[in-house]
Design a protein around this nucleic acid. Structure first.
Lengths: 121, 121
DNA sequence: CAGATCTACAACCATATAGTTGTAGGTTAG
DNA sequence: CTAACCTACAACTATATGGTTGTAGATCTG
């Protein structure tokens, strides 16, 4: 069976791609931790890392596209705030694996406990 | 302040890089879901996707390096099994964000409830 | 107003990634 | 034994990614 991954439930999968990809870089995870208070600007964040402002700006853009942070202009600076709702959404995605896993267990214990309904009579 | 990300807690961050990167591709997430039972070989997995065997093999290798699946030889085929422990580890990594978030809230409510200890006398 | 600061974005480079085909060795089936 | 099958890996291509520098517009400050 060949499943067309480009069409089936594409939206959710696209979001998952973006979120996990954004989380897959240590600098971006660090930015997420530092931006919980929503009081740091892109340039103040940039001062924390041994890379150019533009590089940090790109990382923030990746987080923004994934919905993991929001930016709000405050005068000339752009304040970055971690969006916990999207972090929770990521947890939900991992919980789905848990659900699939549990379904497997249930199927297994069913076979063990059902009084031989499986045998074709 | 510049933090040297290449040294500080490198091992954990390396693992997080690998795990989230492995999760960031829909084909690999699908492989994870299908491999919960641990009864599918690499080639049987490969038949599910519109790509070559070698491509699927590479995806399994990425999951393996991240610790998200284990492979066990069974005759000429290699059976793939999702390692839920690593999925749980990923959940733990997201929970850390939750912890940082909660710490922020506590700090905030502390400021509100502490009877003006903050004012320099 | 003039200069400094913050942001956005383009252009560029090096490397990583996702895919391909091909080759080779171990294992099973006829 | 031979043929088919499963896996591993190398070599290659195209594109994505993470980094750089440079430029330009908007905003604040002296």
């Amino acid at each position: 069976m060949v499943v067309d991954l480009t069409q089936e439930q594409g939206a959710d999968e696209d979001r998952a791609d973006l979120v996990f990809n954004a989380l897959s870089h240590r600098t971006r995870r660090d930015i997420l931790r530092r931006s919980m208070d929503g009081e740091l600007s892109v340039s103040s964040l940039a001062r924390s890392y041994a890379m150019s402002f533009a590089a940090v700006q790109k990382h923030v853009a990746v987080l923004d596209r994934a919905g993991l942070v929001t930016k709000s202009r405050h005068g000339r600076e752009q304040l970055v705030r971690t969006d916990m709702a999207t972090v929770h959404a990521a947890q939900g995605l991992l919980d789905e694996f848990e659900t699939v896993w549990r379904a497997r267990i249930d199927r297994f214990t069913n076979v063990l406990t059902t009084p031989s309904e499986g045998a074709t009579p």
